[in-house]
Amino acid sequence: MKPKQQLITVSAAIFSLLCLIRPAMADRVQAAVAANFTATAKEIAAGFEQATGHEVVLSFGSTGKLYTQIINGAPFDVFLAADAARPQKLVDSGEAVADSLFTYAVGQLVLWSNDENLIDAEGRVLKEKKLERLAIANPKTAPYGAAAVEALTAMGLWGEYETTAVRGDNIAQTYQMAYSGAVPAALVAHAQIALDDRGSGWMLPRELYSPIRQQAVLLTKSAHKEAAGAWIEYLQSEPVRAIIERYGYGLE
């Protein structure tokens, strides 16, 4: 055999071996996931990979940012948003599959500080305007930020905090700002602190803001529809719903 033929034969052999290692059906799902769902999604992804053999690659960001990426051709298969508005817009423009739309979690807003003694059971420090600084997520791109503005407005506090509230790029950065102690407190997602005993927090009454219905949807341009469909289905299974609830989300 000439060296070139030899190379081709060897490559072909290696390639067929590689094909044998993984089951032929296994595929890879690219999921765009709202930042508040980060920890939960990672736990679910591990179980999904074990259960189905498919791999899921998670990209986190604010819902608005991910939405912008999707309509500009980002190669995602599914979108787990932190609101219902943006998935609906994708359905309306034909970029998402209408009958795949469902609410995977209902989020809750929490005032949180890494200082154990700062926040009491009624969130008095916020209402009495004693916070030097407060971090919220950017209301333009992050649904939890929009909910924070809505809640502060309902409490008649937005005028006070509008000019001083620090805006995180997404809810993960917003949490980080308070976690690092750079700001005394932040309005974050309950899921971010639900499994952590540190600091102090106050769950905002639900009537202060519209329900944060987090919807997931399959994207039309997905090149891995089967695996993506399996992921959507897996999200609705009982064990996964239990995980989502454990992280402090409500379910519909």
């Binding site: 950017n138 620090v166 700001v183």
Partner: peptide
Amino acid sequence: GNLPGETKVLSIAIYD
């Protein structure tokens, strides 16, 4: 922290 008039500089405004 994206504060208008305090820390929201050009590059951040464009990003936003």
